[in-house]
Design a protein around this nucleic acid. Structure first.
Lengths: 346, 346
DNA sequence: CAATTGGTAAAAAACGTTTAAAATTTCAGC
DNA sequence: GCTGAAATTTTAAACGTTTTTTACCAATTG
């Protein structure tokens, strides 16, 4: 184990000089800096983060808690956050709550004792538990991502979920659909509730009735969406199109349709929120509402580092990013309905 | 900021007693322990990891470096490692090298200065650079995963890649194929080289000729596989089946086939290494060779914690896990060839 | 009854840095 | 050459734990 003392001894200077050459090289004369650098090189010295952060009262770590790392949305978020945090000189401590509020709370405890400099949190939404530990825990800056909640004055970066859901629903309406199903997320989390709202607003805007029977809560999960799709399609009057509120549910739905012997988009059209790299390897290629995932990660990191540096303070605000419609092949006109010309070449 | 001193003061004991009740409760009398615990509770005290690890010479952190986190194989590996490391009381510092040896080396530097207790490394294979920094860096235990390399005596947990490639190739052969293409990974990494070897062995075992023209190096990347597929299919005698050496290349291939107007499995059969959650949402559902990803993560963590605790020592060894054939729909008999009965109902 | 033992608690010494304060050197201006 | 200021370097004091050493007290033993 090579410490700063060893370097100092070899270079024939004090430890303070070594520390200075590492942290603020211009404070030390050319000659000594030269000697110190050489000593560091030959000893292959690296300062010990634990000692440094003890003294500096900051760890150089940020915590990232995601709800489900196997969800491509979060995977891409993790990728972006890790890359951008790295550019800012931070390493990231990754936590995966697996949609479990208890695990989320535990992770928060760990992050607290690690004294991370900040936390980016995609909460499970069951905030009762985590909220308290969040609050009680010292002044660690927290930025929410994907899923917001009010009342704590935290910064948040989220999709404009209402508009996104409107976009999706309107796309189906423009294609001529009148009975549009919804695979909804849990309304206890903002992403679930807002997307439901957007769906209703779109219907309303086109003077279409809202039929509760066509809406199924499937918890953002694939298997639940599979089951819900089966139910929907067995209605006496099944929907001619379905809007899935996230990627996992879209996949569950596709699987169900295929097992039911229904063809997409011939028998039923599908659109969903969340684009992902392989959406166009599916058959049919999925029409989706894309989220600017990378920008979300980027913004979250920037908000967080600004909080950490103190250049940002006061109560936080919610930052909304806009979605983008990606038209592929999974939406067609319902059987027997002529498609308006304007839509045939999107 | 509440420190151990504050707790000690409130409980009316020395700091040593507080430390003992936290770390080794049975060393302190019931009465004092009671008082201390209460004080900790009311102050909501959490020991500071930096101070603790400075003194204990261990950080409770393990570093995990993956080559490409958006690759579902690595995503699942990350999930497994994070979960299991958590059970062992470790948090994981996630690093994504993006198949870039330079980034990998940088990450290793960071992990070194963070003094992680151990590292799980899926190396990019370009070891020249990372190898040196690995060697020079102190005695941090390292476990390689997915991709091994010899000469450093490190523990490694990998797939039995030769056998896996044999399985894949033989499956195609049994279906009646005689001209089988290979989308290969770079032979500079073990996974690439071994899977190529397995492919050749399978051909040899069935007295089929090895035709270099049917083998394309596509760097484990989707786009390169796309291009390679186009080339393959434009040969005067194109293959009737192709074995893609990983998931990403299988996807690139499917995309290319579709763009070429070729149907799978009617015109060309496809099999690949790496199963993933959505392989059966693709059309056709992909026949794959599944890796026991979760077990690999589990074993890697166990090897690492054993090294850390010192219960394992000496030069490391390579642990091979076996693959499993998952038959779905992407492999059929070549046109005009009768399929042996034994394979029609796999 | 003195001496030893055993158990519990407190005091104090690390751990390896950074940084404020003190000391030394350098150097310009007179 | 002297003075004071500026630049550079060193000394020493933190940072918050854990752990070794020391102190204390009671009980047991010779």
């Amino acid at each position: 184990m090579v410490t700063i003392r060893d370097v100092a001894k070899l270079a024939g200077v004090s430890v303070a000089t070594v520390s200075n050459t590492v942290n603020d090289p211009k404070r030390v004369s050319d000659e000594l800096r030269e000697r110190v650098l050489k000593a560091i090189e030959t000893l292959n010295y690296a300062p010990r983060a634990a000692a440094r952060s003890l003294r500096k009262q900051s760890s150089g770590l940020i915590g990232l808690i995601v709800a489900d790392i196997t969800n491509p949305f979060f995977t891409e978020l993790v990728q972006a956050v890790e890359a951008i945090a790295g550019q800012h000189g931070y390493s990231v401590l990754l936590c995966n709550s697996d949609e479990d509020p208890v695990r989320e709370a535990k992770h928060l405890q760990v992050l607290r004792s690690q004294w991370v400099d900040g936390i980016i949190l995609a909460t499970t939404g069951e905030v009762s538990l985590s909220r308290t530990s969040l609050l009680s825990q010292s002044r660690v800056p927290v930025v929410l991502v994907d899923r917001a909640f009010d009342g704590l004055g935290l910064d948040a970066v989220v999709l404009n979920n209402r508009l996104a859901a409107q976009q999706a629903t309107q796309h189906l309406i423009r294609r001529g659909h009148r009975r549009i199903g919804l695979l909804s997320g849990p309304t206890s989390v903002t992403t679930g509730a807002d997307r439901l709202t957007g769906y209703r607003e779109a219907l309303l805007g086109s003077q279409l009735p809202f039929e509760p029977d066509l809406v199924r809560e499937a918890g953002f999960r694939e298997q639940q969406a599979y089951d819900a799709t089966v139910e929907l399609m067995r209605l006496s009057q099944p929907p001619t199109a379905v809007f899935a509120a996230n990627n996992l549910m879209a996949i569950g739905m596709m699987r169900a349709l295929s097992d039911l012997g229904l063809r997409c988009p011939d028998d039923v059209s599908v659109i969903s929120i969340d684009d992902f790299a392989w959406a166009n390897v599916f058959r049919p290629r999925l029409t989706t509402i894309a989220q600017p995932v990378r920008e979300m990660g980027e913004m979250a990191v920037r908000l967080l580092t600004d909080r950490i540096s103190g250049s940002r303070s006061g109560t936080g605000s919610t930052h909304m990013l806009e979605s983008r419609l990606v038209v592929r092949e999974s939406c067609a006109a319902p059987m027997g309905v002529a498609v308006p010309l304007s839509v045939t070449t999107p």
